[in-house]
Simulated scan of single mutants.
Amino acid sequence: MSILVQVLLTLLVLSACLGDVVAPQSHTLRTRILKETMKLLEKVQQKQEVSCDKMNVINIFADDKRGNNTEIFCKAATIAQETKRCHRNLGGIYYNLLSLGPESRAKHKKPCPVAPGSTTSLKNFLKELHHVLQEEFKSQK
Rank of each mutant, 00 (worst) to 15 (best):
Q45W: 02
L97I: 09
K65V: 09
I3Q: 04
S118A: 11
L4M: 10
T31A: 08
K123L: 06
N68A: 02
T31R: 15
H108N: 12
V57W: 02
S121Y: 01
C52R: 04
I93H: 02
H108Q: 12
S104E: 14
F61M: 03
Q45Y: 01
L40R: 15
I72D: 03
L9H: 12
K84H: 09
K35G: 02
L98R: 07
T31C: 04
R85V: 15
G117D: 02
Q45K: 14
Q25C: 09
K141W: 08
L41F: 03
L98I: 15
L133A: 03
C112A: 12
M38V: 12
D64N: 12
S118E: 13
D20P: 04
G117H: 05
E136M: 09
L100A: 08
Q134R: 13
L133F: 05
A23Y: 11
L122N: 03
K43F: 01
R32K: 13
R105K: 12
V50H: 00
R66S: 08
Q48C: 04
T10F: 15
C52V: 07
K141M: 08
L29C: 00
I33E: 05
M55L: 11
I79L: 14
Y95L: 15
G19Y: 12
Q48P: 00
A115P: 02
T119V: 12
H108A: 13
I93S: 05
L34D: 10
N89Y: 13
T28V: 13
K75V: 04
C74E: 05
